[in-house]
Simulated assay, not measured.
Amino acid sequence: MPKINGNEIKPGTIIEHDGGLWASVKVNHVKPGKGGAFAQVELKNLRDGRKLNERFRSEDKVEKVELENKDQQFLYETDGRLVFMDAETYEQVEIDADLLGDRRPFLQDGMTATVNYFGEEPLNVSLPQKVKCKVVETEPVQKGQTATSSFKPAILDNGVRIMIPPFIGPDEDIIVHTELMEYSERA
């Protein structure tokens, strides 16, 4: 694995540190009046989700890890495990459903997601950025409410509650941004 200097760590960089795989979430480069510059890095463990704040000086060497990304099709869920299939080899892999966290309801049958592998070990699942959902329940439109950019609560077909514009009614299809978990546009 290639070694990089501590000041080359950027958000999203994956490093091997303290015997584990860590993804940098936030990076703040600091130049104090006295002493050398350093990078204050917030790390997240890719295996168990722990967070850690570390300070790396520019002369510190860390091992950068490259993950292999594979597009795989979601088949079904069984006992808290998600089953994905490789479209090329038809090989199936089971991944812990907790890896998706709050985004789990947006995973739909037959959806293609990107699975990040370290060797043979699946570490993370990335959903498509936007997903089509149906509004199941929302409040009726109130007259005069369109003058300001107000939003109203809605429940989607997957059970997720989000805020939508007042002109969207029940049984309408919308596009939801999966990272932000918010309304994007009409479908």
Score class of each variant (00 low, 15 high):
77 E>R: 07
125 V>D: 00
10 K>G: 00
37 A>H: 02
175 I>Q: 00
25 V>E: 11
183 Y>S: 04
135 V>M: 07
6 G>S: 02
134 K>M: 15
144 G>Q: 00
160 V>Q: 07
70 K>M: 04
14 I>K: 02
23 A>L: 08
163 M>Q: 15
7 N>R: 11
13 T>R: 03
172 E>R: 15
140 P>D: 05
82 L>Q: 10
125 V>L: 00
146 T>Y: 13
44 K>C: 09
181 M>F: 01
27 V>S: 15
116 N>S: 14
97 A>L: 03
84 F>K: 07
51 K>L: 03
136 V>H: 04
109 D>L: 05
53 N>G: 06
186 R>P: 07
89 T>R: 06
7 N>D: 13
186 R>Y: 03
167 F>D: 03
187 A>V: 13
106 F>V: 14
83 V>Q: 00
93 V>R: 14
76 Y>P: 02
22 W>F: 13
3 K>F: 12
161 R>Q: 09
68 E>K: 06
174 I>D: 00
31 K>G: 05
48 D>V: 05
127 L>H: 09
129 Q>H: 11
11 P>A: 12
17 H>Q: 11
65 V>D: 15
165 P>F: 11
64 K>C: 06
95 I>M: 08
173 D>N: 09
117 Y>M: 06
161 R>G: 08
27 V>E: 13
112 T>C: 00
63 E>M: 04
177 H>M: 08
24 S>I: 09
58 S>E: 15
29 H>Y: 13
71 D>F: 12
121 E>F: 07
109 D>A: 11
138 T>C: 13
83 V>I: 01
124 N>W: 01
181 M>L: 05
8 E>K: 03
145 Q>A: 08
40 Q>P: 05
180 L>Q: 13
136 V>N: 04
62 V>L: 15
129 Q>E: 10
138 T>L: 14
162 I>Q: 02
19 G>N: 03
21 L>H: 01
122 P>S: 11
78 T>G: 04
126 S>G: 04
130 K>D: 04
113 A>E: 08
52 L>V: 09
107 L>A: 11
142 Q>A: 12
52 L>A: 12
162 I>Y: 05
183 Y>C: 05
30 V>K: 01
16 E>R: 14
68 E>V: 10
129 Q>I: 08
84 F>Q: 02
78 T>Q: 12
